[in-house]
Computed example of a mutant assay.
Amino acid sequence: MPALDALDGLDRQTPWHLVDRLPLDFATFHPQGLAFAAGLTFLSSVEIQAETRGVGHVFIIDERGALQRDVIVGDGEMYHPGGVDFDGSSVWVSVAQYRPGGQSMIMTIDPASGEVRERFRVADHVSWVVCDRVNGLVHGASWGSRFFYTWTVAGALVAYWPNPSGFIDYQDCRFLGEGLIAASGIAVLSGASGAFELGGLALIDTAQRTIAREFPIGLYSTAGHTVTRNPFSISLDSGCVTMRVAPDDDDEGNGTEILTYCATP
């Protein structure tokens, strides 16, 4: 199913059906990104220890939700991992200082061995990365996805452009091919009744430098978070769009659960 056709068939009225709920029975802290590779789940998360100190984790989880390996990522104040993606060979993850404009490391993890490799560094807070192996490109975004980046896999800057949308802040993304990226995210809005989380999905067209599609998602977790708050993965199967998310921290609601939803465009 072509990515643009699939997401064009979805809107705010589309019913999403919860088809699986996988609880994680270990300390997941504050999850950030989600990817699937070699029959395993990769969940990035930040463990905050102090105002400027923490630990970055990428948890490798089996199909039953059991922790197989805790991969520590980062360097000094660069301890905040962002959204992750699997390019068919490696899992890509950004690890940044926990502030806008901070420094970042772009890293890969070998799914089989868990070996971590630093690819390059960026003088900005990079909130997520995806890799286009066919064209040898890496796409990412700044804090809140206000600006988009494209680099070579060696880290040379290819493109830098402002996000034309202010709808939501994209938190985790999936590369779909042909320059298209599926993104999920959140905007926290303030009103008379307090803060409100608005979640949604978007389709980023890196070739045209546009947001090709964007719409809200009215699904909420046990802890009351929009399901697109942080970790997200999407797959486009025959006649169905499958979305996997993990919106809750380990000390909220039922703890961190990987929720699987399906929708028919």
Rank of each mutant, 00 (worst) to 15 (best):
D248W: 12
G140Y: 02
R53Y: 11
Y79L: 04
G191W: 10
A195H: 08
F215R: 09
T41H: 01
C240H: 03
F59N: 09
Y149I: 02
A246T: 13
G239Q: 10
A154G: 08
I72D: 08
Q171F: 05
A207Q: 09
A37L: 03
R146V: 12
T14P: 08
L18N: 04
V227F: 07
C262S: 09
G166K: 06
G191C: 10
A141R: 00
F215N: 10
Q208M: 01
I168V: 13
D20E: 14
G194F: 08
G74P: 00
L24K: 04
R133L: 04
G199R: 08
V84F: 04
H17F: 10
Y220R: 15
C131K: 11
P15T: 05
I61Y: 10
G88R: 09
T108Q: 06
S44Q: 09
G88Y: 09
H125P: 05
A195C: 07
L198W: 00
E51S: 14
V188K: 14
D169G: 13
W161Y: 14
R12P: 02
I217M: 13
D87Y: 12
V129P: 09
Q208I: 00
Y98L: 08
L10W: 06
L4R: 14
G200D: 09
G218Q: 13
E47Q: 15
A202C: 12
D132H: 03
Y149W: 13
S233R: 04
V91K: 00
G65P: 01
I258Y: 00
G88Q: 08
I72V: 15
W16S: 11
T242P: 02
G185E: 07
Q13E: 15
S165G: 06
D124C: 11
P162A: 13
V46G: 03
S142M: 06
C173G: 01
E115D: 11
G200A: 10
E118H: 11
S233G: 02
R119S: 07
L201K: 09
P162E: 14
E63Y: 03
S233Q: 05
S145C: 08
S193V: 05
T256R: 03
V84Y: 05
A207K: 04
H30R: 11
N163P: 03
Y98P: 00
Y79F: 15
G140F: 00
M107C: 10
M1I: 04
R174W: 01
D5A: 15
T242E: 14
G253Y: 13
H30F: 04
E63P: 02
R69K: 12
L201P: 04
A96S: 15
T28D: 07
G65K: 02
F175K: 03
D251S: 11
G140L: 01
P231Y: 09
Y149T: 04
D8W: 02
F36Y: 07
F120N: 03
V84Q: 06
S190D: 15
A183K: 12
L43F: 02
A263L: 07
M78L: 08
L259I: 08
L157K: 11
V138D: 02
Q49I: 15
E214R: 05
L24P: 00
G144M: 04
A223H: 01
V130K: 07
A183V: 13
R69L: 07
V95Y: 03
S142E: 12
D110G: 08
L24G: 02
A37P: 00
P265Q: 03
R69P: 00
A35L: 05
T226V: 15
R244I: 01
